[in-house]
Amino acid sequence: MVKIADIVNALTGTYSLLNNTVFYVDNGTQIPSTWGNSPSGLLTYTKYGYMSAVMAATVSSWRPTDIRWPPKETDRAYAWELVGRHSLSYAGPFALNSSVANTKTQGQFLHGPIMTASVPAMVNETQARNYHVTEQGGEVYLNVWLTSQGLRSEIWWKRVVKG
């Protein structure tokens, strides 16, 4: 029997976002991703039981270059709306779902209760994320997916730093 600590240790690290595919569960029809075809982002799991995720579109029409942080009164509201609509960040504790058979290569994470998020309604939620780990050519890939409201979102990550 694999210990939970061994599974967490195997999964910890920082992963770079490769892609996100969203499709209808009932018929497999793919719909456009919120982040487009070449999104950017990082996902980190620590050995201390915390995680953070940052995802953003790289589609130029969704990433206005005429705004900077901090926002200014003269900024176009629509530009900030685009940034908000095509990016997501959240962080908090994570655990393995003990009601699922977890291994070093597949199982289910529980993200939360989420402590901070760019979408306020996510704060204090706990969200289930299925995972599957594969290795190819010495690289580690993490496929994380969730199903909600008839849609399945599959997100592929590549480990860039081992935890």
Rank of each mutant, 00 (worst) to 15 (best):
residue 3 K to H: 12
residue 3 K to I: 00
residue 6 D to Y: 07
residue 7 I to K: 10
residue 8 V to K: 15
residue 11 L to I: 05
residue 12 T to V: 13
residue 14 T to H: 05
residue 16 S to G: 10
residue 16 S to M: 05
residue 16 S to V: 12
residue 18 L to H: 02
residue 22 V to G: 04
residue 24 Y to K: 13
residue 24 Y to N: 10
residue 26 D to C: 01
residue 26 D to W: 00
residue 27 N to H: 10
residue 27 N to V: 02
residue 27 N to G: 01
residue 28 G to L: 03
residue 30 Q to E: 15
residue 30 Q to W: 06
residue 30 Q to I: 13
residue 31 I to H: 07
residue 32 P to A: 06
residue 34 T to R: 11
residue 34 T to Q: 09
residue 36 G to K: 11
residue 36 G to V: 06
residue 36 G to I: 06
residue 36 G to S: 08
residue 38 S to R: 08
residue 39 P to E: 00
residue 40 S to K: 07
residue 40 S to C: 05
residue 40 S to F: 03
residue 41 G to M: 03
residue 45 Y to L: 09
residue 45 Y to F: 15
residue 46 T to G: 08
residue 46 T to R: 09
residue 47 K to S: 14
residue 50 Y to L: 04
residue 51 M to P: 00
residue 53 A to L: 03
residue 56 A to C: 11
residue 57 A to P: 00
residue 57 A to E: 00
residue 57 A to N: 00
residue 58 T to N: 15
residue 59 V to C: 06
residue 60 S to D: 13
residue 60 S to K: 09
residue 60 S to V: 07
residue 60 S to F: 09
residue 61 S to Y: 13
residue 61 S to V: 02
residue 62 W to A: 00
residue 66 D to W: 03
residue 69 W to V: 03
residue 70 P to T: 05
residue 70 P to V: 00
residue 71 P to L: 10
residue 72 K to N: 09
residue 73 E to C: 04
residue 73 E to Q: 12
residue 75 D to T: 02
residue 76 R to N: 14
residue 78 Y to I: 02
residue 79 A to C: 14
residue 79 A to S: 15
residue 80 W to H: 13
residue 81 E to R: 02
residue 81 E to G: 03
residue 82 L to V: 05
residue 82 L to H: 12
residue 86 H to K: 08
residue 90 Y to V: 01
residue 91 A to V: 05
residue 92 G to P: 12
residue 92 G to M: 08
residue 93 P to N: 04
residue 94 F to R: 09
residue 97 N to Y: 03
residue 98 S to N: 07
residue 98 S to I: 02
residue 100 V to H: 08
residue 102 N to K: 09
residue 102 N to D: 01
residue 103 T to L: 08
residue 103 T to E: 14
residue 105 T to R: 12
residue 106 Q to P: 00
residue 107 G to I: 10
residue 107 G to K: 14
residue 108 Q to E: 01
residue 108 Q to D: 09
residue 109 F to V: 06
residue 109 F to M: 11
residue 109 F to E: 11
residue 110 L to P: 10
residue 110 L to F: 10
residue 111 H to L: 13
residue 112 G to S: 08
residue 113 P to M: 09
residue 113 P to V: 04
residue 117 A to M: 07
residue 118 S to F: 00
residue 119 V to G: 05
residue 121 A to Y: 04
residue 122 M to R: 13
residue 124 N to H: 15
residue 124 N to M: 12
residue 125 E to H: 11
residue 125 E to V: 04
residue 125 E to K: 14
residue 126 T to W: 09
residue 129 R to N: 12
